[in-house]
Structures are given as structure tokens and as C-alpha cells.
Simulated assay, not measured.
Amino acid sequence: MLLPHHGRYDYSAITRRPDYSWPDGKRLAVYFALNIEHFAYGAGVGHALSSELAPPDPRTFAWRDYGNRVGVWRLLELFDELGLPGCHLINTAVFDYCPDVLEPILARGDEIIGHGRTNAERQGQWWEADEARMLAEVRDAIARHGGRPPRGWMGPWMSQSRVTIDLLQEAGYAFAMDWPCDDQPVWLRTRNGRILSMPYSLEINDSPQILVRRHTGEEFAAMIVRQFEEMLRQSARQPLVLGIALHTMIVGQPHRLHALREALSHIVNHPGADRVWLARPGEIYDHCMTLPPGAIA
């Protein structure tokens, strides 16, 4: 029976793919994705810690805004403390609302990933021309404020229309992080070529785990450690990518930050660290481009 299919990639068992390694023979690439988001007041969609009130709901807006006023700074301090590279999934509304956030990111040499204009909107149901304009607007805003256009994209809420992947490739994006189908980078077909799918976990992600499934900060930190340990073991057979997705208003809260610090310290100080590549997604993409044809599924 033939079911409707997206046609972007074919089925591929990870156990039947060519073997390769990351730089210096490392087997597990780990990146840290910090979501830095800005929301409309009293309109649109957004993360919520508890039941939302009738608009304008200042308590929910203020809780989200804590991430930009406090949480992002605490998380950047933690990254500096542990010597971690970062990539930042930034709504371009941040550049106007809280431009101070950009300075330490650029000083660290971190990567900026396109993440829409605001997480108060999703583009999945837009007309194609409107979505194309937004992708170009985001690309150009990041180039203007960050010094170069982004190579990666993660849609607000991982939202996609039927042509998002086509539009991303046509707008010059090199990889997308919206398809959590694999632990290795894979190629996605577009109508004018291909774009790389970068693994981005819907599981090792504080938003669904803490806000939707109601796990505690300690439980989420334990998930990070267990995912890392198991993937490091599995990477003896295949090179893998572990993305750890964080949001400033969630793990930027002190009680959750405490647990997160222990989990990330576990990764940094692990006795098997010589097999681990702490990287940014763009660096993973660059290495994939050096591999022989057919190495990437």
C-alpha cells in the first residue's frame, strides 16, 4: 500500500550506511542550540509554563521575557564557564528588542541560525510568496546584524509548509534542523537541488520535555546524560550527532540551570571526551562537505 509521502528523502537503515568519522577520528558530534526568542504582547502564539490567561496575559509574556532579561545571560555564562561552543536560534525581532544579546554571541564566535522573525507566528500555513519573503527577510537581517547570512534554519515551532525546504534552498540556506528523523545528517531533496538535514532532537529539548510532558529540571538533565552516554556507546559503530536544544526562559531559570550545569559538566569532563567533538552545526556541515559522495544518506 502506498501512503502519502513527502518525497524529501528515502528510507535508509543507519546500520547499512558507509562509515566515516568526524575530525581527528572523533565519533560523536555534540552541539548546543540556544533558542533566543521574542514574542508579541497579547497576540500570537508562545511558550507557556501554566494555563494562559485571557489576553493580554502579562504574566505569561513576562515569563517569556525573563529569558531575554536574565536567562540568556546565565546560559552564556555557563557556556563560557565550561568552554562550550554554541549556536543560537534567534528570532530577528530580538535584534530590535534586546540588541545587547547579540554582542557576547558575536564575541564568542558562535553561530546564528535563522529562527524566523518571532515565535509568536508560524509560517506553515502561509502563502508561498509570503513565506519566501520572510525567509529572505530573516536571512538579510542576520547578515546585517551578525556580519554574514545564516547557513542554517530552524523554523519557529519547527513549522513548515509543503514548500519550506524548497524555499530555504532557493534563499541560500545550506541546512535545515526541522526534520528530527535521524542521528546523522541526511540529504533532503528540493525542487532545485538538495539541502542537508541537521539532526535536532525533539526529545533532548527542554520545551516539550518540561512544558508539555512536565518533567523536572533534574529529569531533563538526566535525559541529557543518558542520551550522551548511549549515543557515545553507539558511535563506535556509526558517527552520530547529538543536538541539545535549550530555551532561555526555561533552563535559564536558576533551579533548572543548576541541574543543567551538572549535565553539561558531565559531558565536558567525561573520560571518553577524546571521542567527542564539541561543535557548531555549521562546522558539522562543513565536514560533511569533505566526505566522499555517498557517505551521507
Rank of each mutant, 00 (worst) to 15 (best):
D100T: 08
Y285G: 02
F220R: 03
W63D: 08
W187F: 11
R213I: 04
K26E: 01
R144H: 13
F32G: 00
P104C: 01
M177P: 05
L3G: 04
Q253L: 12
S161P: 06
A136K: 11
K26L: 00
P58G: 08
P185I: 10
N91S: 11
R133N: 09
H287P: 05
D206Y: 07
S12C: 13
D65M: 09
F228V: 05
P199A: 12
I113C: 07
H215K: 14
P55I: 10
E203T: 15
V276P: 02
M134E: 14
A120N: 05
I142W: 01
N35K: 09
F32L: 15
V276G: 02
A120Y: 08
R27G: 04
G25Q: 07
C288M: 10
C87A: 14
A245D: 11
A297N: 13
Q184N: 12
D206A: 08
A136R: 15
R59A: 15
I195H: 10
H287W: 15
H38I: 06
W187H: 11
G83L: 09
M1D: 13
I284L: 10
V241F: 00
G147C: 01
V138E: 06
A48R: 14
D100P: 05
I284Y: 10
I105D: 00
P292A: 12
H145E: 13
L242W: 05
D166A: 07
A273D: 00
A279T: 09
G243R: 02
W127C: 04
